[in-house]
Design a binder for these strands. Structure first.
Lengths: 225, 225
DNA sequence: TATTATCTAACTGTCGACAGTTTAATAAAG
DNA sequence: CTTTATTAAACTGTCGACAGTTAGATAATA
């Protein structure tokens, strides 16, 4: 079933570069040079180039038409934007699912929830399961483009969570919300499911904004002599 | 203002590969081999790899975890999906713009419309201007993530239009719709603007589905001996 | 000193090559 | 004749190198 999952060097570089950008290691609009990055990560330029293409798509960096790649950084407004789009995509998924003549089964969503419910203490896996739950939610719509758009947003959010994650203080709340959404869907109460989702995402957004703000202050102090 | 626009070989390859896939030159799930493509386009493998990464993002091909890149093709359902997402993004842009305390100016949208209104005979530029109009519409929301998500959808749609384009039989209707949307926005009639947009996109979707179906039939006949 | 011109160093896009791995083909066994 | 084992060809990921171009430093001019 194609589980090979070869580890490419670029994957590792993507991960580390995202972290470095989020932690404010680079200044805004700073030019990221491929040779310097290649030396930093102990590779040739090829995996660095591949990694930069991924980060361009995710919006962490931007490519000027001159070819230069510059750091974009993540502001509170960016996070608000991100969650705004995330909500319209996910709420549309629920609405689209409800409109289907033959609705796709809720089972994958439920299975994911069960795994999360059991392991919700282990914060490492929790973040993955949280995102997987929302991905399953999107998949309910059976719309390839919707999934593709969501993956762009979802991966960005996930990578931010991965780094800023403080151990999921809201773990129990999250599990409870996920449970409520499934119940509402089961009972065909779509509006209630969407409302729960909205509140759920809003809280996630607030937490992330706070965390990123903290990080930013931390950075400002440590660099101001 | 950064107008350099260097021509990379990969851009050319992206264009030609998209066209080949849409015209049905490759079978579904066919394996695209980098060396073969490199020879076909008279380049080394590097620009081919870069081009494939773009096509992966656009959904024309998919990368298996083994590293293989396989052709995905475009079905009528794919187009429906594409337009469904496009509509929720664009309609959200209008709603978000309307909610702003200090609304972004409509001028860029109007400027784009004027250029389209003048040149709408020249079908070559028309396609570009049509997409630019809708991009300006998205920009009204002032949401970076929304724009990024839309660009993914928009570029895919644009590339399909570019190839299947039969000379824009609906040109006048399109210009008229664009004009109506601007008027509605000017008068703060958001619901009407969204309704016009919905009808506008629906007609675009129908045209594209028809065209792609025609292409498919054409292909079936020419390959069946 | 401010501004323009020149030059050098460095970067990006591209190339060909290599190594490990995977696929496909062939041979061996049931 | 089908299924498993073996082998060989080919592909992907990675590397170092080169050339044209760009950015920044230095020199020249006002």
């Amino acid at each position: 079933m194609d589980l090979t999952e070869r580890n490419r060097l670029s994957d590792n570089i993507v991960h580390k570069l995202r972290k470095a950008i989020l932690l404010g290691e680079f200044a805004l609009d700073e030019h990221l040079r491929e040779p310097a990055l290649a030396e930093r990560f102990g590779t040739s330029r090829t995996p660095v180039r591949d990694a930069l293409m991924v980060l361009i798509r995710e919006g962490f960096v931007a490519k000027l038409s001159s070819g230069r790649v510059v750091v974009q950084g993540i502001s509170s407004e960016d996070i608000t934007n991100l969650y705004e789009v995330r909500f319209i995509l996910e709420s549309h998924a629920l609405a689209a699912w409800a409109k289907q003549i033959e609705r796709l089964p809720l089972q994958p969503l439920k299975n994911c929830f069960e795994r999360m419910n059991l392991n919700f203490v282990r914060s490492g896996e929790f973040s993955e399961l949280d995102m997987e739950y929302h991905e399953q939610l999107i998949r309910l719509a059976g719309n390839k483009s919707l999934l593709q758009s969501w993956l762009g947003i979802g991966e960005t959010i996930h990578s931010i969570l991965e780094i800023t994650n403080q151990g999921y203080p809201r773990g129990e709340q999250i599990v409870q919300d996920h449970s409520k959404i499934i119940e509402f869907l089961d009972r065909n109460k779509i509006d209630e499911a969407v409302a729960t989702l909205k509140q759920h995402l809003y809280e996630g957004q607030m937490t992330m904004v706070e965390t990123v703000e903290k990080l930013k202050k931390l950075k400002t102090h440590s660099t101001n002599p």
